[in-house]
Design a protein around this nucleic acid. Structure first.
Length: 470
RNA sequence: GGGGUUGUAGGGUAGUCUGGUCCAUCCUAUAGCGUUCGGGACGCUGUGACCUGAGUUCAAAUCUCAGCAACCCCA
């Protein structure tokens, strides 16, 4: 028997094994925190980012800014530098020549983009300006790195940057970004929760930050998106102004919001099971695999399999025919591990009745489908699979979100998931809550509920989420 | 941030304590051939490794130091 995948209950081990066994990434690249996307993993990534692009392309323009940022620009925004200074890679030499101005490898691109915004924005007619780019960014992570989750090169950072005439218009964009991200994760069947990060945890240089978190199988939360209201902080630093209708110069108000390949980690971690990957059909690199079950010479079966393959391919499905000479059982295991949503078995029994056997990855349900009905049947099954993944993931998520009134309740809840607890809003209390439970305050929920702060006992309506985080 | 452990074929390991027996063991992978094939087949014949550098020594996978990398624990 081939090497077995560890059970998903041992999540850490399962996660790193499946990445390598299924061919998502290879972590053996000889620099800490960097890894290589395998072709199969890259197709997955591209399918996922296609969704993200389609949601943004409605009213954002895609651009591409350079990787290097001169120290002189990077150092302009004081809070921003402080937030990143320990994590920046610096280029200090060109060949053998020492550079007078060191160049930063972007840890994020505000300081690359905003000097250009200054040149581009002249009048209120130029606003709002909404741009995004999908690029690699570098952060010298000192904590333990983990593929797709905590890396030193983020290979696929989608960062959007917008500029608006007023603070209120920028805030409206924040809500719009929340809506876009929420829709994105719905398409991936990833349950998620939106909070406003506490002040001590906001993006360096922002007025406030909103975060999208999901819950991993081991009970830790994963931040899978952030949205920042930058106010006019960067506008003042980079002198980004526009002429308003009265002919006066005003600072712009900005937002930025980002999603990284952590979204891929979430898809893998949340939908996968003991047999391997499970993909929502929309992003599955292969949606249907056709497996011939030969007998004797096996020519008839193979011919029939080829016809099925062509029919599905012509119908627009991403379909593979596995006519290698492994045994059928070995093929079943292999394609299940790779997360293919539907398997079609074509064998002598099927041939006799001009039908095929259709097997779902998520439920293992088997059905016999007459060949003429195959295309509509597959369309329906793929829809059913997506719906089932949504329901299944949501259930597992909801079961692990627990309302708590005391710190000891929080401490118990965060062993398995997320604790909901009241908070008076005082930073000192927030820090005590973190210290007392070993968990982090994710942020405030928009919904309120009457209660008391578990530290000072003050009455409050504010509810925060707490969890152990990645 | 602090502490610890480890590095041997594509992956997992034995050998390291006590230097020579080791052109290195086993499982897996992989190539060829044959028998197989409705849930991880089997036989035969092959392929393939001691992290990098320096040191100690007649002799280093084995001992020492440094680097790089991986993992674990604590804050």
């Amino acid at each position: 028997m081939a090497k077995a995948l560890p059970k998903k209950a041992n999540f850490s081990e399962w996660y790193s094994e499946i990445l390598s066994m299924a061919g998502i990434v290879d972590v053996r690249y000889p620099i800490k925190g960097l890894c290589v996307w395998h072709p199969f993993g890259l197709v997955l990534k591209n399918k996922v980012y296609l969704i993200l692009r389609s949601l943004l392309d409605v009213d954002h323009q895609e651009a591409l800014f350079p990787l290097l940022i001169p120290e002189t620009e990077f150092m302009k925004e004081a809070e921003h530098i402080k937030g990143f200074e320990e994590e920046v890679y610096w280029v200090t030499k060109g060949g053998t020549t020492h550079l007078d101005v060191p160049l930063a490898l972007r840890p994020t691109s505000e300081t690359a983009i905003y000097p250009m915004f200054k040149l581009w924005i002249r009048s209120h007619a130029d606003l709002p300006l909404k741009m995004y780019q999908i690029v690699n960014t570098f952060r010298y992570e000192t904590k333990h790195t983990r593929p797709l989750i905590r890396v030193r090169e983020i290979t696929s950072f989608k960062e959007a940057h917008t500029a608006h005439a007023t603070w209120e218009a920028a805030e409206k964009q924040v809500y719009e970004a929340v809506r876009i991200y929420s829709k994105f994760y719905d398409r991936l069947a990833i349950p998620h929760i939106i909070t406003k990060r506490p002040n001590w945890d906001k993006f360096p240089g922002a007025d406030y930050s909103i975060a999208v978190d999901t819950l991993m199988p081991d009970g830790k939360t994963l931040q899978i998106g952030t949205i920042h209201h930058l106010g006019s902080n960067f506008a003042k630093t980079f002198d980004i102004t526009y002429e308003d209708v009265n002919g006066e110069q005003q600072y712009v108000h900005q937002t930025c919001y980002g999603i990284s390949e952590r979204c891929i980690a979430a898809v893998i971690a949340i939908h996968g099971d003991d047999k391997g990957l499970v993909f929502p059909p929309e992003v599955a690199p292969i949606q249907v695999v056709v497996i011939p079950i030969p007998f004797g010479e096996g020519k008839d079966v193979l011919e029939a399999s080829k016809r099925v393959h062509k029919m599905l391919s012509d119908a627009g499905f991403r379909v593979a025919l596995d006519d290698s000479d492994e045994r059928p059982g070995a093929k079943f295991y292999k394609w299940e591990m790779k997360g293919v949503p539907l398997r079609i078995e074509v064998g002598p029994r099927d041939l006799k009745s001009n039908s095929v056997t259709l097997v779902r990855r998520d439920t293992s349900e088997k059905t016999s489908i007459p060949v003429p009905d195959l295309v509509p049947a597959i369309n329906q099954k793929l829809k059913d699979i997506h719906a089932n993944l949504c329901v299944r993931a949501k259930k597992s998520f909801d079961e692990r979100v627990v309302e708590c009134a005391t710190l000891s309740e929080v401490k118990t809840a965060v062993k398995k998931g997320i604790a909901k607890v009241n908070w008076c809003g005082d930073e000192q209390c927030g820090i005590k809550m973190e210290e007392g439970t070993g968990a982090d305050v994710l942020g405030e929920l928009a919904q309120t509920k009457k209660g008391k702060c578990p530290v000072c006992g003050k009455k409050t309506d504010t509810v925060v989420l707490m969890a152990r985080t990645y």
